[in-house]
Nucleic acid binder design. Structure first.
Lengths: 229, 229
DNA sequence: GCCAATATGACAATTTGATGACAAAAATGC
DNA sequence: GCATTTTTGTCATCAAATTGTCATATTGGC
């Protein structure tokens, strides 16, 4: 949970509505009332998701989305578009442009939350708040608990986030730089080698239940969580 | 228990019926015979739930609900709509507008109570009025009493609400910010660290019956009530 | 064996939570 | 209304856990 979500919406009433709802759901909303302002914010720091009104004064939502999709840095940020009811053409254009989902106004908070969670699950599993399990190793973000074959495992905050990320994206190699971005945050200044140390601490903790083998070193590339040898 | 429930219904007979039933169940009913009057009442003070007749003279129930959902202050108030039997379109419109549940007239008092309780449980478990118990620690909202292994425990108002919330949502971690929102109210300006102090006071009180271990610190994340070590 | 990459253990700085004290504010009793 | 008692929020301080970095050992590939 706790995803940073950028809300681009010019109508103050709806904006506040959405913001309150997001906070309630445990996310961190950031607002912009125009595509221009949104672009500036995105340049500062990447959100985990964007809720985008399709009808905006100035630069339209379509154009804004197109720019995001054209930039490699922002290409992968999921977009949910907010459209007026029945505006079929918008939906088509939107999905073609690369939006991940759309919601027609007026929408219920429940529906909004459901779609956000669905998109997060697809695009950024570690933010969806679901428990993950791999061969007896289980991590539950809601209770903040880790167990190996049902025996509790103690982890420091960083090791917890690191394991969470790796378990949410198993079988894939991540460079130290990528891990720093994903687990530490994309604006910190930390040595690459620091990742090694935390990997070691993580392995240490997992050793108790023989799950340390899951965290594998890929020489020259980085680390990977894998069930295979 | 003791939720303040706004009943919006133009037919006096049904209104009285519902009111009596609500009182019987321990709630505090407030009545309005039109959406306009209801809006005025809501402006005064927020009810915990609204029972809304879908067929109203003047402003319709749909429109009334829509307005409530459009205002951040009233957005989260659960709505149960009362519809005539078989009016399927109403149900659909109603649920889309954000109603939490519906009941078709005529309904039995039992059914009404059941649905009210269900919605309260879903939306604000600590308002449902059920006593909660965890390993000998018992909190009863109805009598406003806390006991540990049947020995009475004294708590200040804030500690009571805090424990109530935690017991209503066991095993889950809540950040200090979330606890402030849920226990203090989402509009107060209080230091995050204040939560620490109240947690400590709560633990102090629970110490007498060895239940202080239930309130656990999750370093870097927040607090949790859990039966596990 | 050599080289580069990674693992490891130790360490100091920083962060985080616990605790006791205190004054303001609210509730209560008279 | 006024005095007394509770409750509340904040702070300063202490103890403990976490974190990033480094120096050094180990490993794997060639």
């Amino acid at each position: 949970m706790s995803a940073m979500i950028l809300v681009v919406e010019d109508e103050p009433a709806i904006r506040e509505l959405v913001v309150l709802n997001l906070q309630q759901a445990g996310h961190r909303p950031v607002v912009a009332d125009s595509a221009e302002q949104a672009l500036a914010l995105v340049r500062e720091s990447l959100p985990d998701m964007i809720l985008l009104d399709w009808m905006l004064p100035g630069m339209s939502g379509v154009e804004f989305a197109r720019r995001l999709k054209a930039d490699g840095r922002t290409r992968d940020v999921p977009i949910i578009m907010l459209t007026a009811r029945g505006d079929e053409q918008d939906k088509i254009t939107g999905l073609e442009t690369g939006a991940d989902d759309y919601i027609t106004k007026p929408f219920s908070p429940r529906e909004l939350n459901a779609r956000i969670k669905a998109v997060l699950r697809r695009r950024a599993p570690q933010m969806a708040g679901d428990a993950v399990e791999v061969t007896g190793l289980r991590l539950d973000p809601a209770t903040h608990r880790v167990t190996g074959n049902d025996r509790p495992i103690e982890l420091g905050p960083t090791e917890f986030r690191l394991l969470h990320f790796l378990m949410a994206h198993p079988e894939r190699v991540y460079s130290r730089a990528q891990l720093l971005d994903q687990v530490w945050g994309n604006h910190v200044f930390v040595e690459d080698r620091t990742v090694d140390v935390h990997i070691r601490r993580l392995r240490c903790a997992l050793e108790a239940t023989r799950h340390d083998g899951l965290v594998q070193t890929v020489r020259g590339s980085g680390y990977r969580l894998s069930v295979h040898t």
